[in-house]
Amino acid sequence: MGEVIIDFIQTMGIVNITWQQIVMIVVSCILLYLAIAKGFEPLLLIPIAFGMLLSNLPLSGVMNEAVSKIQLISPEGVEALKEGTSAYINTETTGGLLKYLFLGDELGIFPPLIFLGVGAMTDFAPLIANPKSILLGAAAQFGIFTTFLGALVLGFGAQAAASIGIIGGADGPTAIYLTTKLAPHLLAPIAVAAYSYMALVPIIQPPIMRALTTKEERCIVMTQSKQVSKKAKIIFPIAVTIVVSLLLPSAATLIGMLMFGNLLKESGATDRLSDTASNALMNIVTIFLGVSVGASAEASIFLSTQTLMIFGLGVLAFGVGTAAGVLFAKLMNLICKEKVNPLIGSAGVSAVPMAARVSQKVAQEECPGNFILMHAMGPNVAGVIGSAVAAGILLSLFG
């Protein structure tokens, strides 16, 4: 009886927990607090944080690998084997639930599906109405290539550096997609860093935006954008898919799914499909991707110098991308007649619509009657395209 009790105690998580797991559990609880109490993108942060919590509870097994074993099924197995008859069977122990869900990340399935949903939810009219917005979206991708160079300097290989740099696009699906192709061994820290920083955009961006602009610039009132025809909205996703795919075939999957989702929305002939892509499918994939990404942050993998370097470079990528967008908008004001509010430049990172909402919030804090949200959506959706194009360039160069 005593042995049974001892065996039972030894199977309890509390006697097997390590200090690393305790640290990760605390981190996951902090992220849950930020998501629930402070409202920092709960749709992203809650699944990620809870997945992180589950995978770091000792002996939970949610991220266990399926293990294959070769078993001898009879004492005469050797003799049978000599005679050409197999006396062995291949058995497999079941892996953890979240390990199987994580295959959707590793195999590059979830990211394109997220892009499908984003396309079905996104209105490209602000970008079509003001094509100059694409320059702001392109400028914000500067953080990707700056961080790529920084990662090379720190000793990462070209493929790993490219995967780390894409964090600066503020686009979790793109970061996951590129990393699975170039540096799958870094998928866990890069995915968690990308999604965590996406959720923390309202904290990261405003100080940079205020530091680089004057009150007068933050109060610039922009003129109303022109109306965009239905025909233009339909032609746009088709044209972008063709042009980008011909120039960068490696970006065809992400751009194609993004534009396919948008075409479902704008065509007017596929309302049911558009509704499914933007609601039910998007919600399901977000849950699966979020919780599996969070579960990949196991203490044994996550608490390392390399991971800390990746998180540091991720902050750099976000900061440089935000700054580049704002500074390019200021440059446009020196060249163009029609002034733009530099705050919309920060929306050039790909976090849709978070970055655009942050631009609007900072503008209204200075001038309560100033509405720049729709103007910020132009560079914001341009940033989605820009990050996918940047991923295509990196994949073409180092894939």
Results as ranks from 00 to 15, higher is better:
Met209Ala: 11
Met209Leu: 10
Met209Glu: 12
Arg210Asn: 08
Arg210Asp: 06
Arg210Gln: 14
Arg210Ile: 13
Ala211Thr: 08
Leu212Ile: 06
Leu212Gly: 04
Leu212Phe: 13
Thr213Val: 06
Lys215Ser: 14
Lys215Val: 14
Glu217Leu: 09
Arg218Asn: 06
Cys219Lys: 12
Cys219Trp: 02
Ile220Cys: 00
Ile220Thr: 10
Met222Trp: 06
Met222Cys: 04
Thr223Tyr: 11
Gln224Met: 10
Gln224Asn: 12
Lys226Ser: 13
Lys226Ile: 14
Lys226Pro: 00
Val228Cys: 03
Ser229Phe: 07
Lys230Met: 11
Lys230Asp: 15
Lys230Pro: 08
Lys230Gln: 15
Lys233Ser: 13
Lys233Gly: 06
Ile234Gln: 12
Ile235Gln: 10
Ile235Thr: 12
Phe236Glu: 03
Ile238Gly: 07
Ile238His: 09
Ile238Glu: 06
Ala239Leu: 15
Val240Cys: 07
Val240Asn: 04
Val240Phe: 04
Ile242Trp: 05
Val244Tyr: 04
Val244Ala: 12
Val244Asn: 07
Ser245Trp: 13
Leu247Trp: 14
Leu247Arg: 12
Leu248Gly: 05
Pro249Gln: 12
Ser250His: 11
Ala252Pro: 09
Ala252Tyr: 05
Thr253Leu: 14
Leu254Asp: 02
Leu254Trp: 00
Gly256Thr: 05
Gly256Asn: 11
Met257Arg: 08
Met259Glu: 02
Met259Pro: 01
Phe260Gln: 05
Gly261His: 08
Asn262Glu: 11
Asn262Phe: 08
Leu263Cys: 09
Leu263Val: 08
Leu264Lys: 08
Leu264Tyr: 09
Glu266Ser: 12
Glu266Tyr: 03
Gly268Asp: 10
Ala269Glu: 07
Ala269Phe: 15
Thr270Tyr: 15
Asp271Phe: 10
Arg272Thr: 13
Leu273Tyr: 14
Leu273Gly: 15
Ser274Arg: 09
Asp275Phe: 15
Thr276Gly: 06
Thr276Cys: 09
Thr276Met: 15
Thr276His: 10
Ala277Leu: 10
Ala277Thr: 09
Ser278Ala: 14
Ala280Ser: 14
Leu281Lys: 03
Leu281Ser: 05
Leu281Ile: 11
Met282Glu: 03
Met282Thr: 07
Asn283Tyr: 09
Val285Tyr: 04
Val285Asn: 02
Thr286Tyr: 02
Thr286Ala: 13
Thr286Asp: 07
Ile287Thr: 09
Ser292Pro: 04
Val293Asp: 01
Val293Gly: 01
Gly294Asp: 00
Gly294Glu: 02
Ala295Glu: 01
Ala295Cys: 02
Glu298Lys: 11
Glu298Asp: 08
Ser300Trp: 02
Leu303His: 03
Ser304Arg: 06
Thr305Val: 14
Gln306Met: 12
Gln306His: 06
Thr307Ser: 12
Thr307Arg: 01
Leu308Gly: 07
Ile310Tyr: 03
Phe311Asn: 01
Phe311Lys: 00
Gly312Arg: 03
Leu313Asp: 03
Leu313Ser: 05
Leu316His: 05
Ala317Met: 08
Val320Gly: 10
Val320Tyr: 02
Val320His: 11
Val320Ala: 12
Val320Ile: 15
Gly321Asp: 09
Gly321Cys: 11
Ala323Glu: 04
Ala323Thr: 06
Ala324Met: 08
Gly325Pro: 05
